[in-house]
């Protein structure tokens, strides 16, 4: 089917999937070796795997962008992209749900159970109040920690992400109305807000580790706090990366007012990351 003659575009044979699998294989081996402190093989495998992954991403997405720009994708392909992006975001929601579920379970079930009458047999002095590092770690002064106040940097970060949701919508209006400058400035502002957000997160982590003694190892509170915010931060990083790609494409003159699903997909993703943050802000920072 290499000779494409209109209609739905079905891709010809491609090496990229295999390249991607090779990358994952290397990264998995590297991860296993590195986590088990088998040096220096682990980091080498990880680096090689990551390099292959980046090569694959450039190659594969480059090809998709090229096909799109050559007009090979008709309306139906566009619909396929919309369905698939929606379901991809849904799968990400479920990924976060696992971690939110862990936090919910710990707060509502396991921690109160650990402090109940029956468990006095095991943990006679445990005060099961959130935040906690758990019945054993709480007894060790080395694990005493303070929590992050919601109304400092986290509130500021909420404002940043909400504003970035507005700027990307503003950029979208620009695209729809053919105002290229508005599009590019809007995207640039969105990226800037995302990067500032990430900078604040890094600052906040340093503050947590050095001033609050709040660490990944601080029992269930530290575990859920860093897992949720860290996983979210990773998604913001991905989102910013995708926004940068889209900005570069806009500056090259890609997309039209009618056809710009690449832009929209990233905007959806960005809004998704935004909404997750609101959930985080409420249950991780605010309702401590």
């Amino acid at each position: 089917m290499s000779a494409h003659t209109g209609g739905y575009y079905f891709a010809p044979p491609s090496k990229w999937p295999l390249v991607g699998s090779t990358a994952l294989f290397f990264m998995a081996i590297g991860g296993v070796l590195a986590m088990n402190s088998i040096q220096p093989g682990g980091w080498i495998f990880l680096a090689v795997g990551f390099a292959i992954l980046v090569y694959m991403l450039f190659g594969w997405f480059g090809q998709v962008i090229d096909e799109s720009e050559r007009g090979l994708y008709d309306k139906q392909v566009d619909v396929s992209f919309r369905w698939s992006m929606s379901w991809f975001i849904f799968s990400e929601v479920m990924f976060f749900a696992a971690f939110f579920g862990a936090l919910f379970y710990a707060r509502v079930y396991s921690v109160p159970w650990l402090g109940d009458m029956d468990n006095r047999v095991l943990w006679d002095a445990y005060n099961a109040a959130w935040p906690t590092a758990g019945p054993y770690f709480d007894t060790n002064p080395a694990y005493q920690f303070s929590t992050m106040s919601a109304w400092g940097i986290p509130a500021l970060n909420t404002l940043l992400l909400l504003s970035s949701g507005a700027t990307i919508t503003w950029a979208h209006w620009g695209l729809l109305q053919g105002k290229r400058n508005q599009l590019i400035i809007g995207l640039f502002l969105t990226i800037l807000l995302g990067v500032i957000f990430l900078g604040f997160q890094v600052y906040e982590y340093i503050h947590a580790y050095s001033d609050l003694n709040l660490k990944l190892t601080s029992g269930i509170f530290g575990s859920t706090f860093f897992m949720l915010t860290g996983f979210h931060g990773f998604h913001v990083t991905l989102g910013v990366t995708m926004l940068i790609v889209i900005l570069a494409r806009c500056m090259k003159g890609h997309f039209t007012a009618e056809r710009h699903f690449g832009f929209e997909a990233v905007a959806w993703y960005w809004h998704f990351v935004d909404v997750v943050w609101l959930g985080l802000f409420v249950v991780v920072y605010w309702l401590v």
Partner: peptide
């Protein structure tokens, strides 16, 4: 499938990065 991925990710951090999701001593279960 993402939920399973989340579950095994927590196993991984419990094994290597000192989290306490599934460790009662740290308040997990």
């Amino acid at each position: 499938m993402p939920v399973l991925a989340g579950a095994v990710t927590m196993l991984l951090t419990d094994r290597h990065f000192g989290t306490s999701f599934f460790n009662a001593a740290g308040g997990g279960d």
